[in-house]
Design a protein around this nucleic acid. Sequence first.
DNA 1: TTTACTCACTTAAACGTTTAAGTGAAAGGG
DNA 2: CCCTTTCACTTAAACGTTTAAGTGAGTAAA
Lengths: 345, 345
Amino acid sequence: MPRKSSVTIKDVARKAGVSIATVSYAFNNADSISDETRQRVFAAAAALGYRPNVRARNLRTQESRILGYSWHPLPKDHWHPVLDRFIYGMAEAAEAEGYHILTFAGSTGDDVWSPYEELLTSGRVDGFILSDTNENDPRIRCLLDRGFPFVAFGRANEAWDFPYVDVDGETGIYKAVKHLFDLGHRRVGILAWPEDSLTGEYRYAGYKRAYKEIGLVADPQWTVRCLNSVDESATAIETLMHLPPDRRPTGVVTMSDMIALGVINKLYAMGLQPGRDMAIVGFDDIPTAQYIHPSLSSVRQPIKAVSHLAVEMLLSLIRGEKLKRRQVLLEPDLIVRASSGVSIG
Amino acid sequence: MPRKSSVTIKDVARKAGVSIATVSYAFNNADSISDETRQRVFAAAAALGYRPNVRARNLRTQESRILGYSWHPLPKDHWHPVLDRFIYGMAEAAEAEGYHILTFAGSTGDDVWSPYEELLTSGRVDGFILSDTNENDPRIRCLLDRGFPFVAFGRANEAWDFPYVDVDGETGIYKAVKHLFDLGHRRVGILAWPEDSLTGEYRYAGYKRAYKEIGLVADPQWTVRCLNSVDESATAIETLMHLPPDRRPTGVVTMSDMIALGVINKLYAMGLQPGRDMAIVGFDDIPTAQYIHPSLSSVRQPIKAVSHLAVEMLLSLIRGEKLKRRQVLLEPDLIVRASSGVSIG
DNA sequence: TTTACTCACTTAAACGTTTAAGTGAAAGGG
DNA sequence: CCCTTTCACTTAAACGTTTAAGTGAGTAAA
C-alpha cells in the first residue's frame, strides 16, 4: 500500500555519487564531511527538491518534534479571551526551533487526562503546554509522575514543583486598585471569583495589598463573589449599588472583562452612567475592550511573552537541559480607558 | 541515542505467545485472527499498557494522520472573531476519525506558500484546511497543481474547481437587509468592503438582492466602502449621516461586528443613540455582541458546522474517496438584538 | 620503514510498525 | 486415500532515516 514517497535520501545519494550516510551527515552538518562533498550533496538535493522525510526521522530519533496543547470548550456565551494570540505565539516560538504545535480538543467529561495519555504513549508529541490549570490539576499530577516534559500556563498546588509561566494577577489587580486610588477613589470594591479559584485568590491578594499599602481598610461588603458570567456580575454589582450611598464603592475592579461587561450593562439598566457614576476596571483586555461604550480600562496579560517563554522552557526540558528559572511570573499592564472615569480628587 | 520506547509490539507478541504480525493484525482487526488469539493479544497489550507507536506506523503507512491549518496574524486591534471555535471544531471532527490538527503560523511576508510546502514535502501533514482565502490565492493554486488534499473555508477564483466550504454571505446580508425592511425601514445603507474583496462582493450581492426583491432602488450614496477597522467605519458612517435627512438611511448593515462597533461609537460621539437614531446590523456575532450597549444584531456564521464539514471533506479526499459535494455553502443566521431598534412602521 | 593516527567517507543495523507471501494443519471433495 | 482449499497463523521485507562501527588512503611520528 505505501506508495513510494517522492524523493528520498537514496535518490540524493545516487545523484551525488555518495552513500546515504554521507547525505545524512551533510544535512545534519557533521564536521567530518568535506566542503566539496557537502556542496555536491546540497546541489543534488536542490536539483531533486529533496526534503528529509520527517516520519522516518521521527521513528529513528524517537521524537516527534511536536508539542501538544489542548483547551477546554467553554460554555456557550463564554470564550477564551486571547486564545488565538496564545496559540499563534506558541506556534511562532515552536517553529523557530523546528517544532510544531498540535492543538487537540480536551475531553468534555471528567477524564481530562486520557487525551494526554493517548498522545504521550503513542509518541505523537514530545511535550505539552497546559493552560487553564487549577489546583490539584490531574494533568499536572500525572505528567509529573511520568516525568514527561510539560510547562503550564498558570499555577497549581503550591506543594508541587513543576515548571510554569503565569501572569502575576496579584500585581495586575494591585495596579487596577491603585489606579482608582490615584484617581481619588477611597471606596473601591471588587467582584472576585469564588474562593476556590486559585487564580482568583492570587488576584484578590492584590486587592488587599493595595489597601494595605494606602493604609485604608476595605469594608468586607465591598467584596462580592461572582462567577465569570454577565448575569452573575449584574447581580453582584446590584448588591454593591444597594449599599447606602456613603458606604457604597465609587469604583470597582473585576476579574474579567466579561464581568466588567455585565457591570456596565447593569449600570445602564439602572439608569446610571458607567465610568461616571461608577469607575470600572476589567481584566484580560479583550479585543473589543477599546471599542465598547465606555471604552473599558483593563489589565492586559502579556500573552505573546507567556506563550514564547512557555515554549522555550518546554524545549529546554525536552532537550534535557536544566531550566534557569522553573517558575516565572510575568507582570501584566494596566490599560487605562474611559471606564475608569476622571479624577474625583 | 534513541532510547528504547516503553512497550512495543514485540513485548506484546512475546507475552501473548504469538508473532508480531499477529498482534498487528489483531489490532487492525483483520478477520483472519481467531477470537481466542485476539483476546489473548488484547489481554497482553492491556497488561503491558501497550499503545501502537504512531511514528513507526506513520513511516510504514506513509501517512501522518495530521491535518495542517494556519492563519495569518492580524494587525493589532484586529482579531479573528471566532478562531477558537473554528480550531476547536476542526480538532473535534479530526479526532473522531483518529486525526489531529497541527496549527502553524503562516508567514508574515509575501511568501505565504513556503510553510505549506515545507509541511507537505516533509510528510508532516496529510492535508490542509485553508481559511482567509482570497481570489487567486497562491496556496490554492499550488495545492491544486500538486494534487495535494485540502479543503478551503472560503471561496476563491471562480474558474478554479477546488473543494471548499463557505458561509453564504449573500444570504447573510440579504437576511439583515430584509430584517430592516421588515421593521419598516425603506432607506437601508451598507458599509461594504472595497470591491476587491471577494467575500465582500458576495455579501454585497445580498444587499442588492434584498432591494430587488422588495422592489426599491438603493441610492448609490447609501453604499460606503470601508475596511475592517473601527476608524474607517467611523468615517464611513459620518458620510452617511451627512446626507440630507430625507435621503439619509435609517438603518445600516455592515460587513463585520468590528465595523458595527465603529458605527456605534461614532453615533454616540455625534450625540446620537444607536438602535434608535440608526438601526445597525453587524456580521460575525462576536462573543461580546450580546453584551455591548446596545446589544448588537449580527449575522452569525455556523462555525461548528463549517469546521466539521471541512474536516470531513478533507478526510474523504485523503482516503481517495470522491466527494458527494465538492463545494458547499452554509446559510448563516441573523441574531436580532437591540441595535436593530424597534419597528418604525 | 613501520606504526599510529586522522580524515572522509561507507557499511549496516536499528527505530516499530504493516503487510505480502509463505506454511503447516485441518477439513472437504472425489 | 490423495488432492485441493481454507484457516490461522508466521516469516520477512519494507518504510526513510540516523549513527555506531568499519575501512582504506594519506599523513605524521618514531
